[in-house]
């Protein structure tokens, strides 16, 4: 995996700055007053049981969901007023591959390269396919690919434009052991390149090993927020299961400087 160097916007100390973020769907709160910060070159692991608000938080950060209250600043860009700039610097791997069944993996990447205005598209596509181990099936239509293969191409798509902030929503789903190792190396390489990663996951050990910071959500609220070094797998699992802050965790009302 090659390391990507990220040009941090001048004067922007934080990759992500989330303040008082709230979102409700039809009167049902999905996020309640969420606060956190993340520095450059850091990874944040997002834990919580199903329905805790992990996907809504990530979808809000990537501009797919409009926040009701609060502010989100990504690399110095306001998520609401500067959504197009935010989109140009984020990479997203969600539950869907975002790939077209009737096109090959390579054609899909070529389409996204055009959308992102990537100048050296062909080189970048080949490098991305190589990095995720997808060269051997790059000319196959994606409808015949397995979930694991699709996920690899989806990761290549998300990395194609060299994002400054990579957001992964339960990225381990469908990946075999080789795929999981690839995912680890992607996150590590992105961090080493100076970009930041937000990853929601149910894999506590993997998440904790990759992360610099940890956030546990419970019913849309931050129930635990701390540095990864200050906690352990047991604490996080208890926080997820009990939906109560761990003894080692900082109170959710404290904003977590990275």
């Amino acid at each position: 995996m090659t390391t990507q160097t990220v040009n941090q916007p001048e004067g922007t100390q934080l990759a992500l700055d989330v303040v008082g973020l709230s979102k409700a769907f039809g009167g049902t709160p999905a996020l309640r007053n969420v606060d956190f910060q993340l520095g450059w070159g850091k990874a944040l692991a997002l834990f919580g049981h199903n329905g805790a608000g992990k996907s809504t938080l990530i979808r809000t950060l990537v501009t797919l969901v409009r926040p009701d209250e609060g502010t989100v600043t990504i690399a110095g860009f306001d998520r609401v007023r500067q959504a197009a700039q935010v989109r140009s610097i984020i990479g997203y791997v969600g539950h869907q591959s975002l790939l077209y069944d009737e096109m090959t993996a390579r054609e899909n990447l070529r389409f996204y390269a055009k959308l992102y205005g990537i100048a050296d598209a062909d080189d970048r596509i080949e490098r991305s396919l190589e990095e995720v181990g997808a060269i051997s099936f790059a000319n196959r239509r994606t409808r015949v690919l397995s979930n694991g293969m699709l996920k690899r191409v989806a990761i290549a798509r998300a990395l194609l434009h060299r994002p400054r902030v990579l957001l992964l929503d339960e990225p381990e789903t469908g990946l075999d052991q080789g795929g999981l190792e690839l995912l680890d190396s992607v996150v590590t390489a992105v961090k080493q390149g100076g970009a930041s990663v937000v990853m929601s996951t149910h894999g506590t050990e993997r998440g904790l090993a990759l992360a610099d910071r940890v956030l546990v959500l419970d019913a849309g609220r931050v129930s635990m927020a701390c540095a990864a070094a200050d906690t352990n797998v047991g604490d996080i699992q208890r926080a997820v299961l009990d939906a109560k802050p761990s003894a080692n965790a900082k109170p959710s009302t404290n904003r977590t400087a990275s």
Binding site: T63, Q85, I90, Q96, L98, D101, L115, R157
Partner: peptide, 14 residues
């Protein structure tokens, strides 16, 4: 239905 709409919405093209 294909799940590709989000790919278009995430593109930095407006």
């Amino acid at each position: 239905d294909r799940g590709t709409l989000e790919g278009l919405l995430l593109a930095p093209v407006g």
